[in-house]
């Protein structure tokens, strides 16, 4: 289980996460919903231990292991990984090398081809570079293939559908399904209904805190009713409804 206890993160005197406490159970699929700027990607950065998100208070545990003093690599060794909303590009590194992590994963061509097929890319992509010659959607697909091949214990997918055409929801569903089948805990950061509906549980974030939790259907309904056309982002206290529509 991944547990976050009273996580508080500030940047430039602005509070991004306010004493957030949340637990993610093994093997479950979670959706974190919320408008832009409510702290969803910050949460991802804190769980992964990224450099810009190390200065926070509160505790993080993976099972009984404190993550607080562990860097990105140490967390990855424990099975945590992250797919960024906008994956970076790498000059001169082929998709084959990237998916194989420069040979460290020792994957067979068949395993790689299978992962590429899952994300809708052919074997012909293996020799292409993970650079600006790939479209945003192609780069995103490569990243999802990479996540599948890593077989993580916990993966955070930050907006897995961004940059990918709306017709590709089935592909994302297949990726999430594959990860679930492999026993991974998947935390999806999204504000798309179709993506949130793939989850077992959903949370609504606003103002750096959890506003509501429940089934994806409940949280999506809550989100659509109150957040879709929100004029007071990050000021949920001005909203009178509390827990009525959602748990």
């Amino acid at each position: 289980m991944l547990a976050l206890k009273r996580i508080r993160y500030e940047k430039s005197e602005r509070v991004i996460l306010r004493n957030m406490t949340i637990e993610f159970e093994d093997g479950k699929i979670y959706a974190m919903l919320g408008n832009n700027g409510v702290g969803k990607s910050t949460l991802a950065g804190i769980i992964m231990g990224l450099e810009n998100y190390r200065e926070h208070t509160g505790e993080l545990y993976l099972d009984d292991i404190s993550l607080k003093d562990l860097g990105v690599f140490e967390r990855a060794k424990l099975g945590i990984t992250l797919a960024l909303q906008e994956p970076v590009r790498f000059e001169g590194i082929t998709i084959d090398e990237y998916l194989n992590l420069g040979g460290k994963l020792r994957l067979s061509q068949d395993e790689i081809a299978e992962a590429l097929k899952l994300v809708g890319l052919s074997k012909e992509y293996l020799g292409r570079y993970v650079d600006s010659t790939l479209s945003g959607g192609e780069r995103k697909r490569v990243e999802l293939a990479s996540i599948v091949l890593i077989k993580p214990k916990i993966v955070i997918l930050d907006e897995p559908d961004s940059g990918i055409d709306i017709m590709s929801n089935e592909m994302i569903k297949a990726v999430v399904g594959k990860l679930k089948k492999a026993g991974s805990t998947v935390i999806m950061i999204t504000h798309r209904e179709e993506i949130a509906m793939m989850a077992d549980e959903a949370y609504l974030m606003c103002g750096g805190r959890l506003l509501a939790s429940g089934t994806p259907q409940e949280i999506v309904a809550f989100y659509k009713k109150l957040c879709d056309s929100c004029d007071h982002i990050n000021k949920p206290e001005s909203e009178k409804i509390r827990g009525g529509e959602a748990k």
Partner: peptide
Amino acid sequence: ETLMAKGLTENEAIELIVKG
């Protein structure tokens, strides 16, 4: 960080990036 989040050490990640 992208490569380290996949399990490469910092030096392994640097080697791969530089090689590219």
